[in-house]
Nucleic acid binder design. Structure first.
Lengths: 137, 137
DNA sequence: GTGCCATCTGTAGTGGCTACAGAAGCAAGA
DNA sequence: TCTTGCTTCTGTAGCCACTACAGATGGCAC
């Protein structure tokens, strides 16, 4: 267990060096030890935490949600109901986004179908975009 | 046709005053006339353009796409193939996003289902988030 | 000692707005 | 005419989640 320099950690996790330091600055990643010369030395736990952060962000969890989960003990702690609640809430948000996108998709699809691409007035695409329809949720 | 002050335009379109000025600055909205005292006076065409911009942004068109459509003659011009191409391209992007979200949704759903919420080790949620799966497209 | 890469800190840039400060326009009332 | 009070003006800074750069060290091989 010699510990990793930041470059090696970046290589292993695919997270930019600057982003790793940023995560530390904003409290998402624990401050690592330092060498005598002031360089960061990371432990295996940092690799796990960083992979977790990366994955959670890819899944669309907000930084605050990630922080919340990490503050519950982090990846190495046992699962608890709070983690589940956050995940369920996030799932709900994902489903809302899917619904919104589905509405947009069907609107665009049907509109594009009705457009000939000719230089006719009353283009259905422009027309649709000018009519300000309500965007609920 | 007296023309509108910026506040009235904001009220009619639901776009913040600062945002209207911002759209002008970045070239999405034509510079309006000014009163002797330097205040902006908008025409009916600005109302149409602003509604169009707002709607297109709500539908997820990028600022560049909006600018592209507007540069083709704007809402009042006849439809042309280029508008259709932009819309089709955007529709493609929307469908990609839907697929990505669907993957995330199913992963989250099945994972949450397997989590009891108890304080057990090997929590499926944490475990899933630690395994760095590739996120293609 | 020298060369050279890795790392350090601190600051500034990105996009798409949003918010504020301080000055000035402008209409109505005293 | 002067004041009050709202609206608008310009310009600058803030937001978030990073990303990029500048200039100074660390630390190892030769």
């Amino acid at each position: 267990m010699a510990g990793l320099m930041i470059g090696e950690l970046a290589r292993r996790t695919g997270v930019h060096i600057e982003t790793i330091r940023y995560f530390e600055k904003v409290g998402m990643l624990l401050k690592p030890d330092r060498t005598g010369g002031g360089r960061r030395v990371y432990a295996e736990s940092h690799v796990r935490a960083l992979n977790f952060i990366k994955r959670a962000r890819e899944l669309g969890f907000s930084p605050d949600e990630v922080r919340a989960i990490l503050s519950l003990g982090g990846p190495q702690a046992a699962c608890c109901d709070e983690v589940r609640q956050i995940a369920i809430h996030h799932l709900d948000q994902v489903r809302r986004k899917m619904l919104a996108l589905a509405r947009i998709e069907s609107l665009l699809t049907s509109t594009v179908e009705h457009c000939s691409g000719d230089h006719v007035p009353d283009c259905p695409i422009i027309e649709m975009m000018e009519s300000a329809a309500p965007q609920r949720a």
